[in-house]
């Protein structure tokens, strides 16, 4: 569950990225975050991931007010979240396997469990054969799937993705979306920021539309 209550975000340069944004995403929902470039989509996701803090208002995640989380509690909070970004942010000098294992390495998961879960995640994104490859030996679409596998390997309850299909052709983009849809089917809350209106229409999930920092539609579940 993600809930924004009258959230304002002003960046240090004075730019008002979000203004009075309120919405609620229920557990297990699949929601698209849409809007023009610069509208504030990434800002919403950054507030959820605690990469940024709201200037005003509150962000509640799974019933907890993130504003009251002390800095030292942030790592544990992020471990319960799956995050996928457009430029995948993979470690280029580590094989696929190690990249996917990273969220488990930073927790105290045993090596046996890590192996089990990494293999399960590799199967889910169809990269079992490439586990020893370096990211640069993969296609862009495959790299994106590594990023997704890394986001889901720790079995988060919430999965947020920022333009996960930005670099992909339509077929690949649809494959990736279907992957996200499968996570929703097993109960994960999925929030995806995207430009790709064709995909949004095709998948037909609720759409939160932002324009110039203001929420124009989809504030509550229909």
């Amino acid at each position: 569950m993600i809930q924004f209550e009258h959230v304002f975000k002003r960046y240090p340069n004075g730019r008002e990225a979000l203004q009075d944004v309120s919405f609620r995403i229920d557990a297990g929902e699949f929601v698209f975050l849409t809007g023009r470039s610069g509208a504030g989509k990434s800002s919403v996701l950054k507030l959820v991931a605690l990469l940024e803090r709201p200037t005003r208002g509150s962000v509640l995640v799974n019933g907890q007010d993130t504003g009251s989380l002390p800095a030292r509690a942030i790592p544990a909070y992020r471990r319960r979240l799956g995050i996928v970004f457009q430029d995948h942010q993979l470690l280029m000098d580590r094989p696929v396997y190690d990249n996917i294992a990273l969220p488990l390495m930073v927790s105290d998961t045993s090596y046996r469990d890590i192996d089990k879960r990494v293999r399960a995640a590799l199967d889910q994104v169809g990269l079992r054969a490439q586990e020893r490859a370096l990211p640069l030996e993969l296609s862009v679409g495959e790299q994106q799937r590594v990023g997704i596998a890394r986001a889901v390997v720790a079995r988060p309850t919430i999965l947020i993705a920022d333009e996960p299909t930005g670099n992909l052709d339509h077929t690949l983009a649809r494959d990736v979306m279907q992957l996200f849809a499968r996570f929703q089917e097993v109960g994960v809350t999925v929030v995806i920021a995207t430009h790709d209106m064709a995909l949004v229409r095709e998948f037909g999930h609720r759409e939160l539309h932002i324009d110039e920092g203001r929420l124009l539609g989809g504030a509550s579940a229909s």
Binding site: A49, L51, R72, P75, A76, Y77, R78, R79, R80, L81, I83, Q89, L90, L91, L102, P103, V106, S107, R150, A154
Partner: peptide, 16 residues
């Protein structure tokens, strides 16, 4: 730097 950023992003604590 990049590695540290990613590690913190996936929930790596300062100690880690």
């Amino acid at each position: 730097r990049a590695e540290i950023e990613v590690t913190k992003l996936v929930g790596g604590s300062n100690a880690y």
